[in-house]
Design a protein around this nucleic acid. Structure first.
Lengths: 224, 224
DNA sequence: ACAAATTTTTAGATTTGTCTAAATTTTAAT
DNA sequence: ATTAAAATTTAGACAAATCTAAAAATTTGT
């Protein structure tokens, strides 16, 4: 039986970042990569790595890198579950727009109450995806990775549905709103410009010309 | 124009405690009283008093005591507003019992987002009282103090409605649940035992015998 | 009013999370 | 293979929030 440690807010943020950079794989994540992602210094990451290793949340070998232990992964999934459920709550129940939810969810994800998040889950009727199309882990840490591709990667004439965004920045999301691009919209790729990789697409019946930068941040699920 | 400081979680907890001990009056609160209430040491209170004074949230005179400034009072009311609105949310929307809400609300009250709490307020249809009968300050810091008295203080044959509790501990609230005593219930005081101050009452039509300890923690509003 | 008791503050230490600057290790290049 | 560059760690410092123990101020009792 592993000893139970209290996990601080700062530790939770590190765990979350390590998960996002490395997934559930045992690949070693570089100190620098974590520091850059968190906008902190590599030396701070080293300090925290020792603390997390002490608590059994990460594997850490000096100069090699950091990866999550099984407990670390479980912890990360629990935080991500909370973050994404709160995002759904904010959008569905409180009329937040999808570009507004991240900052508040960053705070709410640290609230410690199993009952609270399970009740929120129930209130929302157990959603499987958050407002950006990212999957919500279940209580026991499982989640469905949706069959999706970047719009920039699919062949000409592919038809499908917009199911998610890669870039979740407020700037990008507001751009999508302004251009009436929303999850659930039908998409067909009509033409690809060789010169700048921009795409001519049909979205919900209307013709649209989008840059490569936009296409490489939109996920679509191809029609069967 | 007063300088705007970030108020930390710990500072918010001190502000809240000072408000609860001293209200909006300018009465000076003793270092010891605050320390006892917060289960901390007087020396820690002194340290924090200096910090809060620096930020313009309290008046502090060495050896004299501490009281909130106008900004401090505004800050306190904002925290209390958030705490009580979250309590209502937990009970009304997530089926928490009134003895379960305090601990979670203690965390939620520190979430920083004006839009969030205003939307929660709206979702709950702008409640005026929390699950324990305590008034919820409005956005601009006003709240109605209800016309209420301790059940132990009213005269014989008084009739009224149970509108609040003084002791909000889980133990007391669970006791009330077990004995089917709830806010909104009608109450009539039938007889007072001189020996131990216990009361014979009629609650929702049924006879009940309650100790002085219970009666001195229940608020009732007398019928007109 | 003065000594004793109480309250409050100060001084110095501790923990957490961070930083800078210097030292060390690893990686890459020729 | 040796050196230069890059990444990483260590050492020492700092701010926030707390504590203990000692000093100072206030209050109380006679």
């Amino acid at each position: 039986m592993e000893k139970l440690f209290f996990v601080t807010r700062s530790e939770e943020n590190y765990i979350k970042t390590i998960f996002h950079l490395g997934g559930n794989s045992s690949a070693l994540i570089a100190t620098n990569a974590i520091a850059e992602q968190m906008e902190t210094k590599p030396s701070s990451v080293t300090d925290m790595a020792k603390k997390l290793a002490e608590k059994g949340l990460v594997h850490y070998k000096k100069y090699q890198g950091i990866s999550l232990t099984d407990i670390g992964i479980k912890t990360a999934l629990s935080i991500i579950r909370k973050h994404r459920l709160w995002e759904v709550f904010l959008v569905k129940k409180l009329d937040f727009t999808w570009d507004e939810v991240h900052e508040v969810a960053e705070q709410l994800e640290h609230i410690k109450s199993e009952k609270l998040i399970d009740k929120i889950d129930e209130l929302l009727d157990f959603p499987k995806f958050d407002p950006h199309g990212d999957p919500i882990p279940s209580k026991d840490g499982k989640f469905m990775e949706r069959d999706k591709q970047l719009l920039s990667d699919v062949e000409l004439n592919t038809e499908g549905v917009c199911v998610g965004v890669k870039d979740t920045s407020a700037a990008f999301l507001k751009f999508l709103d302004k251009n009436k691009i929303a999850l659930g919209n039908t998409i067909k790729v009509l033409e690809k410009e060789d010169f700048d990789q921009s795409l001519h697409i049909e979205m919900e019946g209307k013709a649209l010309h989008i840059s490569h930068q936009i296409a490489s941040n939109l996920y679509i699920k191809k029609n069967d």
